[in-house]
Amino acid sequence: MSLRSYILTRIILALPMIFILLVVIFFLLRIIPGDPVLAILGGKAPLEVIEQKRHEMGLDKPIMVQFFDYLKDVFTGNLGTSTLTNRPVIEELKDRFPATLELTIFAFIIALLIGLFWGAESAWRKDEPLDIGARVYSVLLYSVPVFWFGLILQLIFASYLRWLPVGGRIPAVTSFEVRTGLYVLDAIMSGDWKGLLDVLRYLALPSITLGMVTSSIFLRMVRNNTVLILSKDLVKAARARGLKKRVVLYGHAVKNAFVPIFTIIGMQFASLLAGAILTETTFSWPGIGSYLVMKIRYRDFPAIQGTIIFFGLFIVVISIIIDIVNALVDPRVRY
């Protein structure tokens, strides 16, 4: 199979999955108890106003008609209007998505860095204290609920030591221009180094929390794969010949150990997103996760539905991209 037809097949295969996702989400949310119209209008609205609103929102139509309207809307990029704010859901998601993306990317980088270096060093010094420490760290960090871990870090570094801000994304006053919504990038593009430092300080705790919790997977994979490669005759020979550690370890062993890690990145990204919900809530991080939690509190139907669809599509897209990259890296995947 050529690369192009592989990519095409992969995308076509994703379509039924997206469709099923849409069906499941639609019917799931229709059975929520709690009338969205009453939630918007409160208790004091007269009956005719309630009826009119119901009509406006299309809630008086038969369920199948509502369903097809919904499918049509989704495919035209219309995720409905938030009942709480009267704004298009897609607009609200656009406002908040960069925050989640920035948090996830940085958490990912932190997880990779910890995993890569600690994992490689542990493999180099197998069974020494550093290695045992790595193993204890992995077990513990993965048993820790991310919201609890975040709270503890917040108490230590924000409340007690006061090194880092408590929550939020930027200080009250900033001077850089927001263009992409990824503040790190925006600050760099505006050449505002003070602003960049501010942004990084706000980003530190949430991304470290999420990154550390995720790092244990990478740590373990790098360590085990590197151990495996280091035990190969070729590498042993290289070590015996007195080649520099940096060359042997990072130039050869880790590089090879990295390939299998790539295959789990897709799934990791999905679980990072889930972790982001709890992390964002802990740190008042204005991303999609805290948005979803807030909208569930207000039973804002269209917003909840839109957010979940958005999450679903995002994950499907990520997994397609990962698969394609895999196919590029390793041609065997295609067959």
Binding site: Q154, A158, S159, R162, P165, V166, G167, G168, P171, A172, T281, T282, F283, S284, S290
Partner: peptide, 17 residues
């Protein structure tokens, strides 16, 4: 500035944020 809960609001005030 809008915060998620009272604990964060209080920390923000105490730290001068």
């Amino acid at each position: 500035q809008f915060f998620e809960n009272s604990t964060q609001l209080r920390m923000a005030l105490e730290t001068g944020q």
